[in-house]
Design a protein around this nucleic acid. Structure first.
Length: 570
RNA sequence: GGGCCUGUAGCUCAGUUGGUUAGAGCAGAGCGCUCAUAACGCUUUUGUCGUAGGUUCGAGUCCUACCGGGCCUACCA
């Protein structure tokens, strides 16, 4: 038994996420967590909301509520949606927790003491009308290069030229439109990542089997231009972890908070501490996952995220932990995802294009989304959601291959033998052949789950379902029954055991349906089939079951067209 | 501009360290079965592996150039 720590990238608090966000971290991490638990490993699966930063403040202002209240509400909304998708987090925390405040300040202080924090005086745009400093991209104006009037302070959308906010002609606040802006001097803390470049480089090099997407992004940042740059880790904002605190190795940082990208990954650790608090456990309960001097040396730590998150997880966060000179557990494997597109284009919040997590649950069961998204996960390149593909995947894989298999087996048995596993007959070459086929597929399934190749694992799982239909077709109990009911009984008994097996194996992908299957066959044993032959004897003759209702209703062409129109956007 | 990824059957994708007749699912065609959500099974059509060169006994796989698609480029998180 191993100990596996799993974190999913933190969803930002300012709104409900769309399916692209779901498939990029939370969903695959859940499938992995469920699989590892099923294999008997000790799993700690952590997620949380990322609550700090300008967008949260603005979203709260727009909603007309204090930012703390806004975050509390949105945290609950996101938590409920996560439950709707059956995301099995051991804890869903909040980056605004006191645990995260304390830990963020602790790590910053440690970095400061180790000479890895530098005070930098810089110029920042202040908007009097908004009463706040503005991040570069919240300043708009005319591009000095191409004349576009909607250039942002960091880059012109039109000509893609990199800009400095002071380059803009007629700059205005993107929030209020106010032109009453001024340049103010302000002091910030920078994390001296450059000082740790070689160490990070060696660390990245020492990792084996990381996805190319992960390492290539890290390498780019390490070696581009003059190499890894230092990074500001504080901001002039109200909402966040205060930079000035008791015992801080710096002065005069009142009114500033840590930049969200500094405190957000630290929340992985803090959320585990929140978990311990919530369960009435002491610090050793979470430290054994995160402190190598306190039991975490045998932990295998896996992170899941979209590709936009990679620089922070390969460089900034490790730099924070390494730089503290404390024995924090570093990540062992980073699984990064590409984007999901919607009908060939981007998901767009503003244009109302695409499907958001709350809407998805309103129109289809979570298993449908889980199956399609995981079996089409953007693992090697971006993947595209279309209603046609969704309909085909659900109807074919879930309804026809798996659902109908369960249905035909249980209904046939009920009709001929009643609702209990029939007695009589014996197994022969046909059963041995399916067992061998499933054993082969199961090995592939397990290997792909270990490697977190979920798309391939889904194909393996499907092949295991198909094997059941092939078996039934070849064994043809409906024909055998006419001449020899006893032999038919053996076939049905074996098939019912396949049903139970499918209930066990399908759990990581479609937990609700898996649960229904296990319930309908009254499975008392839902353990992973380490011994496949034994697992196929789990349901003995005489064991009662309940014929389930239709497991997966099909999506009709009419319904598909309706949804396509509903989500087409503006 | 720079960097990375990607281009394989009508569609979505697999193709391990280069090694014989390039695979799967869907869609299409034919046959079979009739237990089942008109479901299932079997058989089967389609490929100049983006283009052009090169290395090699041998290249989808390695190298170069070009063409197409996508992403990243550090103050949005």
């Amino acid at each position: 038994m191993a100990r596996i720590l799993i974190t999913s990238a933190l969803p930002y608090i300012n709104g409900i996420k769309h399916l692209g966000n779901l498939v990029g971290s939370q969903l695959p991490s859940d499938a992995y967590a469920r699989y590892m638990r099923a294999r008997g490993h000790e799993v700690m699966f952590i997620c949380a909301t990322d609550e700090h930063g300008t967008p949260a403040e603005l979203a709260a202002a727009k909603a007309g509520v204090p930012v703390a209240d806004f975050c509390t509400d949105m945290w609950q909304v996101q938590k409920d949606i996560a439950e709707g998708f059956r995301l099995s987090f051991d804890y869903f925390g909040r980056s605004s927790s006191s645990r995260n405040r304390d830990l963020t300040q602790h790590l910053a202080a440690a970095l400061g003491k180790n000479g890895l924090i530098e005070e930098v005086s810089e110029k920042q745009i202040y908007s009097k009308a908004d009463g706040r400093y503005l991040p570069d991209r919240y300043i708009e104006g005319t591009c000095p290069d191409c004349g576009s009037e909607n250039a942002r302070g960091d880059q012109c959308e039109n000509c893609t030229k990199q800009l400095d906010p002071t380059d803009l002609i007629n700059p205005r606040s993107a929030i209020s439109g106010s032109t009453d802006l001024e340049v103010r001097k302000t002091k910030h803390l920078y994390l001296k990542q450059s000082a740790m470049r070689d160490k990070l480089d060696k660390w990245i090099d020492s990792q084996v089997g990381w996805p190319v997407l992960t390492t290539s992004i890290a390498k780019k940042w390490l070696h581009d231009g003059d190499g890894l740059r230092d990074r500001g880790i504080t901001r002039d904002l109200d909402w966040g972890v205060p930079v000035q605190f008791e015992g801080a190795p710096w002065q005069g940082m009142e009114g500033k908070v840590f930049y969200v990208w500094f405190d957000a990954p630290i929340e992985y650790i803090a959320a585990t501490a929140e978990w311990a608090d919530a369960n009435g456990a002491d610090d050793s309960a979470w430290e054994r996952w995160w402190r190598e001097d306190k039991g975490a040396d045998d932990v295998h730590y896996v992170q899941f995220m979209g590709k936009d998150n990679v620089p922070f997880h390969t460089l900034s966060f490790p730099a924070t932990l390494m730089g503290s000179n404390e024995p924090w557990k570093l990540v062992d494997f980073i699984k990064s995802y590409n984007w999901l597109t919607y009908e060939g284009g981007k998901f767009s919040t503003s244009a109302g294009r695409g499907i958001f997590m709350d809407q998805a649950l309103e129109i289809m069961p979570s298993d449908y989304w889980r199956w399609w998204l995981l079996s089409n996960a953007p693992e090697s390149s971006d993947s595209n959601f279309t209603w046609e593909s969704f309909q085909a995947g659900i109807n074919k894989d879930l309804a026809d291959v798996l659902g109908n298999f369960v249905s035909r087996v249980t209904k046939f048995c009920r009709g001929k033998f009643g609702e209990q596993v029939p007695e009589g007959g014996s197994y022969g070459p046909a059963e041995a052949a399916v067992s061998a086929e499933i054993a082969k597929r199961l090995t592939a399934y397990q290997n792909n789950m270990e490697k977190i190749e979920l798309r391939k694992a889904a194909a393996d799982l499907r092949a295991i379902w198909v094997a059941g239909n092939e078996y039934l077709q070849a064994a043809a109990p409906w024909s055998v029954y006419k001449e020899n009911p006893e032999d038919a009984a053996a076939i049905v008994r074996f098939a019912l055991n396949l049903v139970r097996l499918y209930g066990v194996l399908s759990g990581p992908f479609i937990p609700d349906a898996a649960h229904s299957i296990l319930q309908s066959v009254n499975a008392t044993d839902a353990r992973w089939p380490d011994d496949l032959d034994a697992a196929l004897l789990a349901l003995p003759a005489g064991h009662g079951f309940t014929t389930p209702d239709v497991l997966f209703a099909k999506i009709s062409d009419e319904r598909r067209d309706e949804l396509e129109a509903q989500f087409a956007g503006d």
